[in-house]
Amino acid sequence: MTTITAGLSSGMRLRVPTLSANVLSVALRELREAVRSRWFLLYTLGFAALGLGVSYASSASAGGAGLSGFGRTTAGLVNLVLLVVPLMALTAGAGTIASDRERGMLVYLLSQPVSRLEVLLGKYVGLGAALLACICLGLGSCAGILAWKGDATRPLSMVWLAGLSFGLALGMLSVGMLASVLARKASVAVGTAIFLWLALVFVSDLALMAGTMALKLRIEELLAMALVNPLQVFKMWSLHAIDSSLDVLGPAGLYAVDEYGGRLHLIFGACLMAWVVAPLALAAAVFSRRAPV
């Protein structure tokens, strides 16, 4: 319990300028490794290429010049983020500690004058920064293409999309690192991450659909269950931010806006924050207790 509180308080301290020097140096090392690694290059190129494809195709097809709104462009980008960003973040998180342990890197790291918590947080910050770079390069070039094509997507919606994608990435990175701390082998950790990705992207939605059709779930139940899934939270939040309403999501969206109104931003934020903090705290608790090798 004390470890969790310690983890939380360090987490809080991260956001203030008094960053622990150890955390920072681990983070920089992790960022450098990540940025120079093959996965980063692959994911960034893949994400940017797919995003550019989506942007190019959707702005080419729009027949009505100057009509802005929640069009196919934004829908396509939200869709792409939902598919790619969680996969990226989950596997990045899962691959870090377990593989360091396998390579004997972890023993080396922990022999330095740094605490385990600092190693964990440093890795989290470093990988988070790498993901931020990846998302920004991807979505930034999408925005560039859209501007060049004269698409009517509002500028602010791209900023929202990038910010919220980063939030989603941080949550999924937390989950990935938890898997990595728990697993004994890197392959198991990455496998678990991919399984989790499948569950969050497809299985939970299919279950929700089946539940709605078969069990006749009530709207508030459906909404509550959707809020458990960070991907749905990201999706609803981006729609709410971009379109300033959730009409587009039918009765459940109307219900959400009507029931919670201005508090929706807070609710979405809290849900996403829970996915960032809880798995990371748990990972910190487990990691501080376990033998390194």
Binding site: A75, V78, N79, L82, L83, V201, F202, D205, L208, M209, T212, M213, L217, I219, L222, L223, A226, L231, Q232, K235, L239, V248, L249, G250, P251, A252, G253
Partner: peptide, 9 residues
Amino acid sequence: KLRLLLFSP
């Protein structure tokens, strides 16, 4: 109600 799941993969 299934509209809630729009835009997801």
